[in-house]
Design a protein around this nucleic acid. Structure first.
Length: 490
RNA sequence: GGUCCUGUCGUCUAGCCUGGUCUAGGACAUCGCCCUUUCACGGCGGAAACACGGGUUCAAAUCCCGUCGGGACUACCA
């Protein structure tokens, strides 16, 4: 894959700290990040906290830690400790009000924006009546022709007002890198509110000012922003700011094909972390939701993703989030890890203190090795391996193999016991296999191995009996076999 | 309702721009077989889609039009 020239683009992710880092935001961040890395250029983080009411510190922290966990590092932007990274001021909108104020004032002065004194409830009724007639809910423009002098007087009298941008009565076309030309009729939009007042800009305005001041070249964001784009372009033109390229990503959908929401699935990046998904797997999976490389490859490490990422290969329609495929992919990545790495990760997500019987690290490493192939997420580990720590209660029928009678099963178990008793304290897979070989030869594999395995695990399914014996050791093996005999006798 | 976006297996998708090589390829899930004491892993195989209707063309999943379906947006939120 050919590399594009370096330093040509600057992209950003602009989450608002009004909720935990959403998977959709994570994917948008990933696409921006991949685009930046592919072009060997900058990826910027900007915290959009203009809505003071709804923005919270804990959400901001969650954004930082989620991005860090995924490995989405940024070149410029705010730091978790309140500092900033990169040449510009901290990229929190709440810390840039003077910048917005300047631009607001210049628009007001130029007459491309004006104060609007209309009352909110009046506007609401107007809107409702318009909608009832099947018309677009457009502002009437009543305050548009107010003179600046009059506005100043009314403001001085303490009247409350918002700031609107004059939107021209014409069509606007922009080129979307994913969808091609998109056309809007601006008269259906009307004069939009761009700020509550000089100190409190609104989203569409702040975005435009920030993207320009941060020299953003490409705005890559969710499809839900398509309708905002013409508004932003109008503001941008009014301010005389340079154009940017737009690319609107298809949305991640729930199985009912609506925008992914917590009603249906886990949407917080942090919850996937807690569930025991690997960031590599999440990244690979998210990249494939709406994007696809050339060819049939699906398991792609980050460097390949970066090398092959291309906006031209992004899907137009939304993608349903398929948790089963994520599980499969996570399993694939899990299996590439060493036993030790897996064990370490398991310990970071689960509370070890409540384990009844402690096993040595060597034993735990063996368990990881045995369970690796059936592990899809780290969080499954404890239920999959509980029997190693404590024999679960089970029904004696579990011990019976196919047509075998209770009596036969008990006999086999007893023979097994006597041969295990002759073994060394240290059991390993091959010594166990060797010791039991004569019994297997006499009775048959299923006839010996099933009751043995069932007695040792108390589970319908588990790793093989020799492997379990190796982990359990002679004493505990004998214990469990003894218990099985009692169970089947009573 | 209005505006905009969108429509290939159940799901993610390749192919579409540059019509023929597509009796439409891959992956997850599913079914069957093999491996196997069980489950998983792995291997092999099966079932499974071009929304519909018109055009254009010798030829359409691919180009054009329409219909229908799905979604997003519709705040003094972002």
């Amino acid at each position: 894959m050919a590399r594009k020239e370096k330093g040509k683009v600057r992209v950003r992710i602009a989450p608002s700290p009004t909720g935990y880092l959403h998977l959709g935001t994570g994917r948008t961040a990933l696409f921006n990040w991949l685009y930046a890395k592919h072009h060997e250029s900058e990826f910027i983080l900007r915290i959009e906290d203009t809505d003071r009411e709804r923005s919270e510190k804990k959400y901001e922290d969650d954004i930082f830690s989620g991005l860090a966990w995924l490995g989405l590092d940024y070149d410029e932007g705010p730091l978790p400790d309140g500092g900033d990274k990169g040449p510009h001021a901290p990229y929190r909108q709440s810390q840039r009000t003077s910048l917005y104020r300047q631009h607001l004032e210049s628009m007001l002065l130029a007459g491309s924006a004006y104060y609007c004194f209309c009352k909110k409830d009046e506007l609401d009724t107007e809107r409702q009546s318009l909608e009832a007639q099947g018309l677009a809910p457009v502002y009437s423009g009543r305050c548009r022709s107010l003179s600046q002098a009059e506005a100043v007087t009314r403001l001085a009298n303490g009247e409350s007002a918002v700031i609107r941008c004059k939107v021209p009565n014409q069509k606007l076309v922009f080129e979307d890198l994913i969808r091609g030309k998109i056309e809007f009729d601006l008269k259906l939009i009307g004069d939009i509110v761009i700020a509550k007042n000089l100190e409190n800009p609104l989203y569409n305005f702040a975005v435009v000012v920030d993207d320009a001041s941060m020299l953003i070249t490409h705005v890559i964001r969710g499809e839900d922003h398509i309708a905002n784009t013409p508004k932003q372009i109008v503001i941008q033109q009014a301010l005389g700011l340079p154009k940017v390229h737009y690319a609107h990503l298809p949305l991640i959908l729930d199985p009912d094909r609506s925008k992914m929401s917590k009603r249906y699935s886990a949407v917080a990046v942090s919850s996937y972390r807690k569930e025991g998904y690997l960031p590599e797997a999440i990244m690979n999976f998210m990249a494939l939701l709406g994007w696809h490389p050339e060819g049939d490859k699906e398991l792609m490490p980050l460097n390949e993703l970066i090398a092959e990422f291309d906006l031209g290969r992004i899907q137009k329609a939304g993608a349903v989030f398929n948790a089963e495929k994520l599980d499969w992919m996570n399993g694939q990545y899990l299996r590439k890890l060493s036993d030790r790495e897996i064990l370490q990760k398991i310990k970071t997500i689960s509370d070890q203190s409540e384990k009844k019987n402690k096993l040595t690290e060597a034993q735990e490493l063996k368990i990881v090795n045995l369970l690796k192939s059936r592990l899809k997420k780290l969080s499954e580990f404890s239920e999959l391996t509980g029997f190693f720590y404590e024999l679960p209660s089970y029904n004696s029928e579990l011990l019976l193999w196919k047509e075998m009678s209770s009596k036969e099963t008990r006999d086999v178990l007893r023979i097994i016991i006597s041969s295990v008793e002759k073994m060394d304290q240290e059991i390993n897979k091959s010594s166990a296999e060797q010791a039991l070989a004569p019994i297997v030869a006499q009775w048959g594999r299923g006839e010996v191995l099933w009751p043995l395995r069932a007695a040792l695990s108390g589970e319908k399914s588990s790793p093989g009996p020799y492997e379990i014996m190796e982990v359990l050791g002679k004493t505990e093996t004998l214990n469990r076999l003894q218990k099985a005999v009692e169970k089947i006798t009573s």
